[in-house]
Simulated scan of single mutants.
Amino acid sequence: MGKDSKPKEAKGKGKQAGGGSDETASKGKGKAGKSADGLGTCTYVKVNFNLDISARHVLCEKQGKINEAYKKLQDGWLNNGDKVPPAEFAKIAAEYSECPSGKKGGDLGWFPRGKMAGPFQEVAFNTPVGATSAPFKSTHGYHIILCEGRKN
Rank of each mutant, 00 (worst) to 15 (best):
K11A: 11
K34S: 03
E61W: 02
P119I: 02
D75E: 15
I53V: 12
N80V: 07
R150Y: 01
Q74Y: 09
K11H: 11
G2R: 15
A124V: 09
N152R: 06
S21W: 03
G19R: 01
G118Q: 13
P85H: 08
C60N: 14
F125R: 11
I92G: 04
N80R: 12
D4K: 09
G102I: 09
E61H: 04
T43Q: 13
L78I: 15
N126F: 08
C147I: 10
P86T: 06
K6C: 03
H143V: 06
N80E: 14
K3C: 08
F89T: 04
D4T: 12
K137L: 02
D82G: 02
A124W: 08
K83G: 00
M116A: 07
Q74I: 11
I92K: 03
A93Q: 03
S101N: 13
L73V: 06
S101W: 01
F89W: 11
A117D: 13
G2E: 00
V47L: 11
G141M: 09
Y44T: 02
G130I: 08
W110I: 06
L78V: 13
A87I: 08
F125Q: 08
E68M: 04
G30T: 12
E98F: 03
K62Q: 11
A131R: 10
L59S: 00
N126W: 12
D22T: 10
P86G: 15
G106Q: 06
G149P: 02
S54A: 14
G114C: 07
A36Y: 12
P7Y: 01
G105F: 07
G118C: 09
G2T: 09
G149F: 05
A124Q: 09
E98G: 10
C99G: 00
G76V: 05
S21E: 10
K103L: 06
Q63V: 05
S97A: 03
A117F: 14
K27G: 13
I144V: 15
G38V: 09
Y96V: 11
P112E: 12
M116N: 08
F111R: 09
K115R: 11
E61Q: 10
P128T: 03
V58C: 08
G149M: 13
T132K: 01
Q74C: 08
D75A: 08
T127V: 03
G105I: 14
K151Q: 12
S26G: 09
A69G: 02
N79W: 14
A131I: 02
N67Q: 15
S54G: 15
Q74P: 03
E68T: 09
K27E: 13
A87K: 15
K13Q: 10
I144P: 05
A87R: 13
F125K: 06
T24W: 11
H140P: 00
G141T: 07
I145H: 05
L59Y: 05
H57T: 10
T24A: 14
A124R: 07
C147V: 12
K46D: 03
V45I: 14
T127E: 06
V123G: 00
G14Q: 02
K83H: 04
A134V: 12
C147A: 15
T24P: 00
C60I: 10
V129E: 14
G33D: 08
G114P: 04
T127H: 06
G76L: 04
K71W: 00
Q63L: 14
